[in-house]
Design a protein around this nucleic acid. Structure first.
Lengths: 200, 200
DNA sequence: TTTCTAACTTAACACCGTTAACTTCATTTC
DNA sequence: GAAATGAAGTTAACGGTGTTAAGTTAGAAA
């Protein structure tokens, strides 16, 4: 049994090695431009070996995205500790979301911007994706409980805010060539606008 | 010269035929799943003929997107005539933008969501893309002139609003599987929120 | 009538994701 | 200790992709 456990560890090690290589290449070059063959080459295995650990390229992509979700959630939750004012927490969370996207543009793009195949999209709900959204919901609930909002439909508000910050994040990532006003100002403007729009 | 002109018309006709086929297939199946070979097959020419009319697949894609921009702009401008209240015009414009995206999801996706190659992105500024944005700018300017806004940085406001509505449009298109609240409510919520956020 | 040239095609290159069939080799069983 | 088992990894192939160089063809110009 010790031998078997050791064995399992080895398998897991290669799985992680594949994910590390894939993540690094996806981030550096974009998902489209990275082929299974080149990932395999990078880690010194044949292309087919990857298929022993991941169903297909989409599965690999999906698993890297799950990591990203988890990291984003952790970051946002960490930021929350810094203030007691619920609206300030919300503001900080929104800002952290945008910053995270800009700091990991390829990861953000492949998680939130690229279309996910139907089956992946379905799982999506019961995994880190929903946990990330839970965080947003809970901050908004705090604001609602403190009676700071125009109305208390937390689900609606959460999705509204998510849509807005996702829009800015993805525009800045995908259309860097568009003559945007200075980034910091635009981010401040969006966050201020939506917060002003929902507060009592 | 008559012959020559007739000749040019023929060329143009095939160019349009290619664009029609490409648009239709892109919209029906998604850009990724449509190959140059299949577009060619559809119009009864060899794949290489397309390259006599378009530099490459991206160029073809780009030209279809330009059409889309033009159509969107026309729609938004038409809607503007329906009201005199600048804020109502703005509201209607934002709503039309989102509706347009939902009615032409593949066209919207390939124009605004998919990353454009650097060179395409550069031209983008002097063509229909900027004309569409001009429309938004002009509605906001009207609001500013009527002293209805918190501040009058039209460029900043335009980009803020664009980010927000683009976010919702692209989320609804790309992540149809996410358990959103009812679409109409979400759209209303976003528009109301951003308008409330910028008005005096 | 011959020459030229624009329009179009054929054939190929170098890649892609994925699968079936194989080798290899450590572990287990007799 | 030898044979059988089975997991891990590889080779080779299939049917596709975007794109290009070279070749054909048919109609206009000389």
């Amino acid at each position: 049994m010790v031998a078997r456990s050791r064995h399992e560890e080895d398998k897991e090690a290669l799985r992680l090695q594949i994910m590390d290589a894939a993540r690094e290449m996806f981030v550096a070059e974009g998902v489209e431009r990275v082929s299974m063959r080149r990932i395999a080459e990078k880690i010194g295995y044949s292309p087919t070996t990857i298929y022993l650990y991941f169903r297909d390229k989409n599965d690999l992509l999906h698993q890297v995205c799950e990591e990203t979700f988890a990291r984003l959630t952790r970051n946002i939750q960490a930021i929350q500790q810094l203030s007691d004012d619920p609206l300030e927490k919300l503001r900080a969370g929104l800002r952290e979301y945008i910053q995270f996207g800009l700091q990991h543009p390829e990861q953000y793009a492949m998680t939130f911007i690229s279309p996910l195949p139907r089956d992946v999209e379905f799982e999506f709900r019961e995994t880190n994706g929903s946990i990330a959204f839970d965080t947003l919901r809970s901050v908004i609930t705090d604001c609602a409980d403190a009676n700071l909002l125009k109305h208390n439909d937390v689900e609606l508000l959460g999705q509204t805010l998510w849509a807005a910050i996702h829009g800015l994040t993805s525009l800045l990532i995908q259309h860097g060539g568009f003559p945007f006003v200075e980034r910091g100002r635009l981010i401040d403007s969006l966050i201020s606008t939506v917060i002003a729009g929902i507060r009592r």
